[in-house]
Design a protein around this nucleic acid. Structure first.
Lengths: 190, 190
DNA sequence: CAAAAAACTTAATCAAGATTAAGAAAAAAA
DNA sequence: TTTTTTTCTTAATCTTGATTAAGTTTTTTG
């Protein structure tokens, strides 16, 4: 299963057979049960997670006790509390498997070992992060320039399979609307 | 002025004298007049910009013709249309100097030349992007879990000098409220 | 300095979407 | 397959903040 990550890396940087085997020696997969947590708010976030299979959710429980989705983690996506991981502070987010999932965890030590032995992995991560950050800037565009209804129509057009696979209230939260309002939008779909 | 960037890089990775002079040979500063554009929507975005001095704004003109702030670029911050730059597509954003500013532009070719000669710059950019992406995930938290008023109070407490320096309507837009509403919030400040 | 442009304020009206409160349907567990 | 839990729906009411429309102040420019 680590081969799935290697394939993803090779889309950005070339790897020798030796480098691939270094990666396979250092990293291993982790199987998560539905609703299993990788970390909770207040706990340290010790790793970055590459999603091989399934879906994770990064969310925060707000002052009213409502869970607010921050980010989905699906196939070939890196997800973590980047600031918590970086500054070694207790996480403000929760990271949980939405359904049974497979991830590859990379902790600080593994990260340093790998980038020491294979410096071009830094380039891989740089490129991955540019995409993630770029996409997140676009998301602000959607959040500020589209109504809740427009965001839902757009999101479900762009991700038709995904909206079938995860509970609606998670989609609602990710889009910044209540599940009641999303239900209303769907009902009026002609 | 490139030394300002070098100082920033050295906070993340060590540079030899020779490496510093490579950077100084490849990069140079650009002085921007207030309201000058680095690129406009529809144009290619050919570089990443490191803000040495002043303030830039990344924004998009929406369907109603209203400018929506996406991101501010201030001292020691990298700013660009990451997706447009990466995929060489016309930018969807506008990047403009809010006031007179100094930036260091790094285009594709310079980027490749520098990371070829100084591979550890990839690490620098990786670390910079982790912070930017992490901060942007936190911003979604603020957007979804705080009211417009709370966002303004929080933002101006965190950035007291900055809110004095740039027009209010840009702050309003960045926070996702109208300038009229921001004015109302400020008026009722006891 | 005068005129023009840009930025900010005030206030009335309006609408998108939240809240509240059931109840229904679907999925998971026993 | 029955029970329990989770998820989704409907509908009435309410609120935050948008919109519209002046008018005022500040800044810039000729």
């Amino acid at each position: 299963m680590v081969s799935r990550l290697i394939t993803h890396i090779e889309k950005q940087v070339a790897l020798s057979a030796e480098e691939k085997s270094i990666i396979e020696d250092v990293l291993f997969t982790e199987h998560l049960k539905k609703k299993q947590f990788l970390f909770k708010a207040g706990e340290p976030c010790r790793a970055k997670y590459f999603v091989v299979q399934g879906c994770l959710r990064l969310y925060i429980t707000n002052a009213k006790g409502i869970d607010q989705m921050i980010q989905f983690g699906i196939d070939n996506w890196w997800i973590t509390d980047y600031l918590g991981f970086k500054y070694k502070k207790p996480s403000v987010f929760n990271l949980q498997a939405v359904n049974d999932a497979v991830v590859i965890a990379v902790d600080e030590q593994q990260m340093e070992e790998l980038s020491g032995k294979i410096p071009k992995l830094e380039r891989y991560f740089r490129l991955v992060l540019e995409t993630a950050y770029g996409a997140s800037l676009m998301r602000f565009n959607y959040v500020f320039n589209m109504s809740g209804e427009e965001r839902y129509r757009f999101f479900s057009t762009m991700n038709p399979d995904f909206v079938q696979k995860v509970p609606q209230y998670l989609i609602a939260s990710y889009l910044g609307v209540t599940p009641e309002f999303l239900s209303k939008i769907r009902a009026k779909k002609v």
